[in-house]
Simulated assay, not measured.
Amino acid sequence: MTASVKEPVLTVFMLVKTTPEWLAFSVDERFRLLREHVEPILKTHADEVSMRFYDVEFYSARVTDIWVWDATSHHAYELVVEALRETPFWDRFFEVVEILPGVENAFARNYNREALSAS
């Protein structure tokens, strides 16, 4: 479900926790609900926003998943959140625990330096 977003100006790490209601659904029903509620939002905003899912329930009790959003503008990200809030995924199927926005390598850019890289 990840689209190729032009150079993101914002990356948001949305820490979420599954609810008992979500876990009570079968795997097939979960995927059906994702296609019904989330996929249309991703498709509508695919030119400006992409999303990646990370499962972390193996290592954390506080959150079960991290949704990583890359957006070409703050406004594009805000529109996705507004749309998500109108679905049962926002605080019904998943509790939104924390939202951490960030700008990749802002420190280096703000001081006109090359970003550190391991490659």
Rank of each mutant, 00 (worst) to 15 (best):
M1A: 15
V5A: 00
E7M: 08
T11M: 06
V12G: 04
M14F: 04
V16D: 00
K17Q: 12
K17S: 07
W22D: 02
W22G: 02
W22M: 10
L23D: 13
L23N: 09
S26H: 07
E29H: 06
R30T: 10
R30M: 10
L33I: 03
L33H: 09
L33W: 03
E36M: 09
V38T: 06
P40E: 10
I41W: 01
L42N: 07
K43F: 03
T44V: 06
H45S: 02
E48L: 04
V49Q: 05
R52N: 12
F53P: 00
F53M: 13
F53K: 10
F53D: 07
Y59N: 13
Y59A: 13
V63H: 12
T64E: 09
W67C: 03
V68P: 03
A71M: 01
S73E: 11
S73Q: 04
A76M: 10
Y77A: 02
E78D: 12
A83R: 06
A83P: 01
L84W: 07
R85M: 11
R85I: 04
P88Y: 08
F89D: 01
W90A: 07
W90F: 14
R92F: 08
F94C: 06
E95A: 13
V96E: 02
V97A: 02
L100P: 01
L100S: 08
G102D: 05
V103Q: 15
E104N: 12
A106L: 13
Y111H: 15
N112A: 08
E114V: 05
E114H: 08
S117P: 03
A118C: 08
A118Q: 09
